[in-house]
Design a protein around this nucleic acid. Structure first.
Lengths: 226, 226
DNA sequence: CCCCACCGTCAAGGACGCGTCAGGACGGCC
DNA sequence: GGCCGTCCTGACGCGTCCTTGACGGTGGGG
């Protein structure tokens, strides 16, 4: 799950945010003042920062600048200051978003999701390329190579491999694979999976009869092993 | 300066935004409905989109999804809907920011600056000149040469080649090519691609029947190989 | 021991996508 | 008005891919 750093001096709001975010699967770190915020940002490398401007030690904009000095992490400013000049200053200082109190929790959560989505897409994406054994799979370029030799895949083969690779190491149920590749109406056509997993094994595995990456989990589904 | 696409059905607001943004050095394109918005987004490649949800033809969220389908351009939703559920829906549909009317112009400008700053940081600039085999392609001068001999391309041929070259090495889906070159309404006319890729191959490839640069990925799209 | 559920393999058909060509429509230019 | 370049459109052949069904192997349970 995504990691969020919550910086606020009010214990009540810190607690409310921790509970709400934690309940929705976020990994929450909290900081009560500017110094702790800078330290936590450097040590935990959060995916997004939720920053209150009204801090006891440092001015919120200094914290903002301090983090911006070395990290492009999305920062959402959360403040009671409603003057438009404050919003302009914060945004121009490097904030990605500006939310005034009081706020609706569901909107804040949506803004957090949007900020994380952006941060993941805009930055470097190491997950776009997967190396496993002699296999090299580039999800962005849509290319696959085995031992350096490019491998030709049909659209359906690629689509199936893509779903398995993006869930690498995890088990993917047959119903889920069928729904993702063939559509919601094909939840029972497990023949397709048998045929196409076989074709993928023949193209990708060194010993198709003893697969090392495309693993069958009998009665459950398939799993791509790195 | 940065380019912004303003999508709103109210002429008054369109005009106000155009004047305000234009006076501050923005390059403004306007669209009054969803269809025009999709077309303008595909043809002008703005740095940021300002999108009103209340459009006469399409639902605002459809426009949002339509642009998000092929472009990561920052989108700021500007709307009179104040319900928190609307904001959540828009943000989860891919919007980067959500501003309710009435709004302060200076804050909106700051949010636009923040969105553009973010967008610029993520993308890497494509090379202006590309050399591949005997081909020399100058994207700035709009010239192509094969073995030193200049090649004449029609506007459509050039546009298609440009999209492929700027994504060199990457697979570009047929739908994306059609949207970028012909517009968002031509997502299914794959005949055009067959004809024009063939013409490009005849002009650029040494052996058109065995292309080395304009590669077909059956069922998926085309790729320009260096 | 037999049966059944599940998985892997293979082959064949029909469907679909791609490349190619040619003809006609449209608009600009002389 | 006539010429020319560009773009769109349809038809055809060919190769590939998807689908479908059948068969054999395997392991667990009755």
């Amino acid at each position: 799950m995504s990691r969020v750093l919550v910086v606020d001096d009010e214990p009540g709001l810190r607690r409310a945010l921790s509970i709400n975010l934690g309940a929705r699967g976020w990994d929450v770190t909290v900081a009560a003042d500017g110094a702790a915020a800078l330290e936590a940002a450097a040590s935990t490398h959060p995916d997004v920062v939720l920053l209150d401007l009204g801090l006891p030690d440092l001015d919120g904009l200094e914290v903002l600048a301090g983090i911006r000095g070395w990290s492009p992490v999305p920062i959402i400013v959360l403040t009671a200051r409603t003057a438009s000049a404050d919003a302009v200053d914060a945004l121009d200082a490097g904030a990605d978003d500006y939310v005034t109190k009081p706020f609706a929790m569901d909107v804040l959560l949506a803004r957090l999701r949007a900020a994380v989505r952006r941060g993941a897409g805009g930055g470097d994406r190491p997950a776009e390329v997967v190396d496993a054994g002699g296999l090299h799979i580039d999800l962005a370029r849509r290319t696959v190579a085995r031992e350096g030799e490019p491998v030709r895949l049909t659209p359906t083969e690629w689509h199936l491999l893509q779903v398995l690779v993006t869930n690498a190491g995890r088990l993917v149920s047959q119903a889920q694979l069928l729904r993702e590749v063939w559509g919601p109406a094909y939840g029972r056509e497990t023949n397709y999976l048998r045929v196409y997993v076989g074709q993928l094994r023949r193209k990708l595995e060194q010993v198709p009869s003893a697969p090392r990456h495309l693993i069958t989990e009998p009665g459950m589904g398939y799993r791509f092993e790195l």
